[in-house]
Amino acid sequence: MQSTAFIVFYSAASSCPEPVGLRRTLAAAGHEVIEETAFTGAGRSGARWEVAGTVRQLRALVNPLDAQLARSEDPAVRGTAIAVVPAELVRAKKLLLVMDVDSTLIKQEVIELLAAHAGREAEVAAVTESAMRGELDFAASLHARVATLAGLDAAVIDAVRARLELSDGAAELIAAFKAAGHHVAVVSGGFAQILDPLAAELGLDFARANDLVIAEGKLTGAVNGTVVDRAFKEVMLRTWAKELGISMEHTIAAGDGANDLDMVGAAGLGVAFNAKPLLRDAADARIDLPRLDIIANLVGI
């Protein structure tokens, strides 16, 4: 049986132009385009091609073209991307999507919102940025940032929760996956006190984050238990997939920073969402537009 994979390309344009040289490059290497399907959505348009060939073969051809698009300074192609998606993901009856939370599921960084109440937002934001670029050990940086919250009234948790904004397309993405019978989970280096109510509201299957220590109605500046770092995020991806009886080939992981590297690398499809360079270079697909529901377009939902 002939191996096939899907090549997906999209842009912010209302009518997505076919990437220059893509069809010619495929034909020159002997890869036939079997079927073409166009798609549109809020803030983007694109197409999904089923192409004869293996994922490895097609990525060897497509990734250099995608890298050129990523480096382009032409505003007409800004945000345009090409990705190769395994056929088994597009055809799977049951998928598991696991997402990071801060700057992925939501637009903000929760630790910075909390730190603002302590007058330490700029200091904490600088540490967060460095950690997401992979320049600092995440666990050590988390402990240092949480320490700045010591003494805050626990009521700030409700105040911060009220300020959360879902990323554009996040609700639509979750609804589409759930309607198709798939599973959605989130794993965060943030805090369970913020995340758990949001996860319940969105109807997510699983959620895991760090646990802030609260004593006598005040934040102590510490967290309970194991820190949710990059290694722990991969552990949760694998744990949830096993619990659901889903193979790792049928998982998708999306994030924006170095703390997401391990789960993005382990998933059947790893997605970098408006990500730091370290993750963008490692991911199977990149989204450089503000719409999180492009993930649904990638896998044909």
Rank of each mutant, 00 (worst) to 15 (best):
T220F: 03
I295L: 02
I252F: 01
L237H: 04
A162W: 04
L289Q: 02
D211P: 05
A179M: 06
I246G: 05
T239Y: 10
G189M: 04
A179L: 12
R208A: 14
M248S: 13
S247P: 00
A179K: 09
I252Q: 02
T251F: 11
A215R: 13
V228G: 05
A215G: 09
D168P: 14
A285P: 09
L173Q: 11
T239R: 15
V299K: 00
K178P: 02
E165L: 10
L219H: 04
R286C: 00
L219T: 09
F177I: 14
A275S: 00
G265H: 05
A283F: 06
D260K: 03
V271I: 11
A231P: 13
I174E: 04
I295V: 14
E249C: 11
E172A: 15
K276S: 06
A176T: 14
A192F: 09
N224W: 12
A170G: 12
G203Q: 05
A283W: 00
H183W: 05
G189H: 02
L279E: 00
V156W: 04
V184Q: 03
K218R: 15
V186C: 04
A272L: 06
R280H: 02
E243I: 10
K178S: 15
E165K: 11
G221K: 10
G270W: 10
A215E: 15
L166R: 13
D262N: 15
L237E: 08
I246F: 07
D211V: 15
M248P: 07
A171K: 07
G300A: 05
I252S: 08
M248E: 14
A254Y: 09
T220C: 07
D158Y: 14
K276P: 00
R230H: 14
G221T: 11
A200Y: 00
L278A: 10
R286S: 01
T220K: 05
P290G: 10
I246L: 03
R208V: 14
K276I: 10
L219S: 02
R238V: 07
E172R: 01
L202V: 02
K276F: 05
V160E: 13
A209H: 03
A283N: 02
L212T: 11
I214C: 07
D229H: 14
D158F: 03
A176G: 11
G265L: 11
D229F: 06
A241Q: 03
R161G: 15
A275P: 05
A296N: 04
D158W: 08
S188V: 14
L204T: 07
W240A: 07
